[in-house]
Design a binder for these strands. Structure first.
Lengths: 156, 156
DNA sequence: TTAAATTTAGTTGTGTACAATACAATTTGA
DNA sequence: TCAAATTGTATTGTACACAACTAAATTTAA
């Protein structure tokens, strides 16, 4: 006795790993939103700030490599962060193709306002530290595999 | 001897579960793209078609519930699928607030062209069936938790 | 050296995402 | 029963994502 279906199991939404990840990503963004609203950042802008809080200064290319984003996404986003007074954008004197991104004092200061956010997220998902580490490891492994597959696709 | 850092571990990009998921989601979309290009669909449109191949007909609201998307996203996407001749959009006669989405013969036929895609994705990620099932279960569990957190946020 | 190839950002165009709002159809409650 | 609340979809505005392309600066190789 089979369940009536007009499609094959491989094409069913509930069996799609990619859809689960895609939906999960958007639900996470929603979970961040009220906290990011308080400090005036979008989720993507928050990720850029995380990189800058670690590195003080980097190029657009380095940001793109860290975040898996290209210049078509980053350029307008960085202009908005500049307009908000959080970052500086200046051409490198050594190599004028490069644009150096750095924090303003306000951008640096915003880190203190952001420090509570990871804790709030952990609360929201109710993951134990062990579960968190375990999931993070599995996702990173999967990310590496899919990224490698894309890299080898783009080479051929 | 501590590693020099200007930020706290909680705010480091490599420790963000959400970022790993977000990047993973976009890398998966890239992995689909060459295959979806062949059948003329975007990734989001492919997800809508998956639902319709299962259900034949549903309302915009039901699509949104299945995909975690709202009408602001679905309405223009559905108009493009209609323009491509893959679906029909018609007001319900019983309740004129509802818009019924159904497949055209071309939309139904496209399923045959899509059937090879899940296999190509499995190849790309090089996951064994056991790994696949295991990951899918874990991510579904996480999706449920985050979704529940958002639902209870929106109620308060 | 100097023309060709490469690197790095920026621009343009298409397609999502989603909050906020609008509006018409339906349901509910005094 | 009929005004108020709810429901379902569409519209508007902002902000990504990314492919394809442009342009300028740098590197390379003959």
């Amino acid at each position: 006795m089979q369940k009536e279906s007009t499609t094959t199991p491989e094409l069913m939404l509930e069996n799609q790993l990619c859809f689960t990840i895609y939906a999960c990503s958007r639900e996470f963004t929603k979970l961040y939103q009220p906290h990011l609203d308080k400090i005036g950042l979008t989720y993507s802008q928050y990720l850029v700030m995380l990189v800058l809080w670690e590195r003080q200064q980097c190029t657009v290319k380095e940001l793109g490599e860290a975040l898996f984003l290209d210049s078509g996404t980053l350029t307008p986003l960085l202009k908005r962060l500049q307009a908000a007074g959080l970052i500086l954008r200046e051409r490198s004197l050594q190599d004028e193709r490069k644009v150096l991104i750095s924090l303003t004092p306000q951008g640096l200061a915003l880190r203190h306002d952001a420090m509570g956010i990871p804790g709030k997220m952990a609360e929201g998902t109710m993951l134990s530290p062990v579960e968190f580490i375990d999931l993070l490891g599995q996702f990173k492994n999967l990310l590496n595999r899919v990224h490698e597959a894309n890299v080898s696709n783009s080479k051929s």
